[in-house]
Design a protein around this nucleic acid. Structure first.
Lengths: 398, 398
DNA sequence: GTGACTTTTTTCAAGATATAGACTATGTAT
DNA sequence: ATACATAGTCTATATCTTGAAAAAAGTCAC
């Protein structure tokens, strides 16, 4: 029952510094004057704090803007090359490592294919580590300027120093990925579920921008969701919140690859949809087959949309979001052709009041934003807790 | 994307004062020394702040405790008669108004029966207002010491100055209850959904104590839930989050009184269960008939437990709570006899990792805790934002 | 060009806060 | 009675934000 605590007068500065930096990051080039309105701080404090940040080279000046008849405003922005963030996407078919500057420009990329079914922990760890080395080398970024590495992985991630992973599709049971990676890289690590990193990417740069309460629904072979409560990813007690795909939508219904019956994923996951339509595919042909199916007018698709609508309605009833973002490769395909029907089915299965406040939109980042999202974990931490000259003085811990 | 902000150095004091007061409230009699550990504040600050609070009469001394070989500790506690909170339960069959001191001792109570179907707004408002007058008069508490009134109502409550209510079972559509009540009472108002107030009661004084992530599942004639995320009631964008009863558990299933089909409530709400069992009752005999049914070994009960388990599993998968509290009169009856089966069904329908962190327990407060919970809204606000001599100097707004 | 005016940004003194560490209070043990 | 132990308060200090005043850096009318 005890809520957040602040202590000393020094925390005030740290907090205001973070507030200001965050405002600057998301608002883009902004003058000190505008920052007073954005942050609620006085002009004096803004001047003060920006002075610090400028001295630390965390922010830089970005031109002037005339103002009718007065001193022109100096625009400020976050220095995009103050530090760099690495994002890693551990997917079913590949390990992808990307290096970004703070503007999220991709400066280097490294990718490794994974053979289907070959998700050995050692292999993945080796790929991630050599990917990190590769992107740092390729980009020419000095290691001291790498702020950290974010990793998006499938399955349930218990956050903490160990970052335990439970991923059925990989056959991973209690894999201490954090410990394994930390042995091979000096950079601070942030490990999270891939759906959650992707959700954060949509929130920062995609269809979720501007909303405080949102759900990012991700539909691919499997089904997941990322819940944003009051601007922050909701994780629950053990970071496994958002397992939408395995909520029951039919008691005693179709059996699911999780071992249960009647899971939503068994009705709207691409793998299950193709199976229900009697189409036999492997990983390589899955997406093409699904795309074809969606436009075919098959009754299976119709049924899928019915279940999807109900699934979204459940999210709306439970979370009362302002926005639902439908993403994932299969979700995007379905949405591009059938968004109106999806909305209609959601409305039919939802209470009117919460439905009316939730707008259902398509994701804007495409299915490859997991690495981007993973990198935002690093940036998020940076924006929150940058102290003077903090760049990797001592390697932090996830 | 911008998170909480602190501004001036004065907010620091306010915040620390609130942290300390809250710690004191929930930990009971505590010495200054212990408070340093509980709050993280320095001894000097604790001394400082407690000095303020003592001077304001918000806290009082509560005896001494020997310490082996040193100065004895002075215990401090919140002054239970510093202020008083009124809680109102607007239910389907009654309006109940209770007045509590800060220790949540009930000092006065006033109750009005509502005839079934007679939920006219005017009638309810009149009952609430005369109930408030009655409990203040009966208790002899000076009106200036009444900190506020909390009201728990059915349906969806859009919080705000108007506090719009949408309650289908009452036939209320966009009723501005806040405005209506404010015209008749000078006390600060806090209006919320009854399931949420009850949930907060269980969190503070019942089966939820000590957990930060919990879901209180309430099963009566209807079905609702209160979601506690990181110690706070989760409300979503428009305060309607937690509409568990109308999530779909069966596509195209039984029709529900909300007008939809396949709602969870249509399977596990007491009204629906009795209907499914072919038992015809009215409001007065409902509870007895349900109690009898539960122990009868009827297959309908078995099915109900199956659905309840799945419904709980969905909550666990989505929210990853540490604790699920099953409450509501029907929920308590089911739980008392069938908790093991319920847990087993939940486990069958849930991913193992989140299931293993969620303990499913019965509510401890009984079905009449709505008014208590409503009063905690007032106390919560008091603990959060008490400034020196703040008692109803100017009537605040919900 | 120049002086008046406007708008943005910085400087400065004032007021408020938490903390460390010294100090006081109040007991037990011997 | 003296030593010791623990609890709580006081004081000096370093920070912090802020409002007001001052400075900076322009435009504009003439």
């Amino acid at each position: 029952m005890v809520r957040p605590e602040r202590r000393t007068v020094r925390d005030l500065r740290r907090g205001n510094r973070a507030v200001l930096l965050r405002a600057l990051y998301f608002a883009g080039p902004t003058s000190r004057h505008e920052l007073t309105a954005l942050t609620g701080l006085s002009a004096a404090t803004v001047s003060n704090v920006t002075g610090d940040l400028l001295a630390d080279d965390i922010i830089v000046e970005a031109g002037l803007v005339d103002s009718d008849g007065g001193r022109p405003r100096v625009l400020l922005r976050v220095n995009p090359t103050y530090g760099f963030a690495i994002g890693v996407d551990v997917g079913e078919t590949h390990v992808r490592v990307e290096l970004f500057d703070l503007d999220m420009n991709e400066l280097a990329k490294s990718e490794f294919a994974l053979r289907p079914g070959a998700h050995d922990v050692d292999v993945v760890v080796r790929h991630v580590l050599s990917g990190i080395d590769a992107v740092v080398a390729d980009s020419g970024v000095p290691p001291s300027k790498v702020l950290g590495v974010g990793v998006g992985v499938p399955g349930i991630v218990e956050r903490g120093p160990e970052a335990m992973i439970h991923a059925q599709t990989f056959g991973w049971d209690s894999v201490p990925l954090g410990t394994l990676l930390r042995a091979g890289t000096p950079f601070p690590l942030h490990i999270d579920n891939g759906a959650k990193t992707m959700g954060q990417a949509e929130m920062w740069f995609g269809a979720g921008r501007g909303s405080r309460h949102a759900v990012i629904a991700l539909i691919g072979s499997g089904v997941g969701a990322s819940i944003i409560a009051d601007g922050m990813t909701y994780r629950g007690a053990n970071s496994s919140a958002g397992e939408w795909g395995h909520t029951k939508i039919a008691i005693g219904g179709r059996s699911c690859r999780c071992g249960g019956r009647g899971c939503l994923e068994a009705y709207i996951g691409a793998e299950a949809v193709l199976e229900r339509a009697g189409i036999d595919v492997d990983t390589s042909t899955e997406q093409a087959a699904f795309a074809e199916l969606v436009t075919s007018g098959s009754p299976v698709v119709e049924e899928t949309v019915e279940y999807l609508g109900a699934g979204l309605a459940n999210l709306i009833n439970l979370f009362n979001p302002e926005r639902i973002v439908v993403g994932g490769w299969a979700g995007l395909l379905l949405g591009q052709h059938l968004l109106t029907t999806i909305k209609q089915k959601a409305a039919e299965n939802c209470l009117t009041q919460p439905y009316s406040t939730a707008s259902i939109v398509l994701g804007r980042l495409g299915p490859d934003a997991v690495a981007l999202g993973a990198a935002t974990l690093v940036v998020d931490e940076f924006l929150l807790s940058t102290t003077s000259s903090s760049v990797s003085r001592e390697p932090a811990v996830s």
